[in-house]
Amino acid sequence: MGEFAAVQAIWLREFKVFTREKSRVISSMASPLIWMVLFGVGLNGRVDIATPPGIDYTAFIFPGVLVMSILFGSIFYGLYIVWDRKLDFLKEVLAAPVSRPSIFLGKVLGGTTDSLVQAALLLTVGALVLKLINPVFTGISPVGALLALPIVLLVAMSIASLGLGIGTLFDSFEGFQVIVSFLAFPLFFLSGALYPLEGLPAFLTVLTRLNPLTYAVDLLRTLLLPGYVAQISPALDVGVLVVWTVIMLGFGTVMFQRMK
């Protein structure tokens, strides 16, 4: 009972902080829109990716851009634990009669909630932008958008856990660029966010298939783009994402328990 209240307390705190940092919400919207309009539109009609009629390149990358925004948002949310420790606020929480797994879970749920709010906003704004850019686009169905949210949840939960787990190892922000260069960017570029999975050189095929986010992007395309044919079976997509999320939750819990 006490543990549950503590999870709730930390969750609530994180969400409160999120709603107070309006600039963070706005900037989290800016980068996906820049990718769609300034990058996607530039390539519309110039890349031949054999998509069904009505899906231009901007629409094709939209699910990938959505995953990117959750990926970067969640990984930074997790790494932010370094800052919490620096500011000493975390001491108060770590001194409380609360188990480490509960503190971790509260943190993860807080980050996941932030991501779900961002994703809902982005799905709405993104759908409008896609329609504006390409009047032929059939549009994102409300059902598809709703079904996308559980996928966003899995991505947010797993990546926030990963970020929190890695964050426990750092004393300062100095190593962060390394994480961004060697973890966040590869996860993004190897997810098939910007190009189709078929016809890739062998090494990219292997790497994309090893990347759990590939399955999220594929599934989100299937849900959000009418007429798009899944490249991986949706059952496999869901299976991989669930297993990956469970592993990451385990990783984060262990790291939190080891943290002094």
Partner: peptide, 18 residues
């Protein structure tokens, strides 16, 4: 927690301590 008010800090503590 400097992002919270004084009252919220106390409330958070109360929740953490049951």
């Amino acid at each position: 927690d400097s992002t919270l008010t004084g009252r919220e800090n106390l409330d958070l503590h109360g929740r953490l301590y049951g």
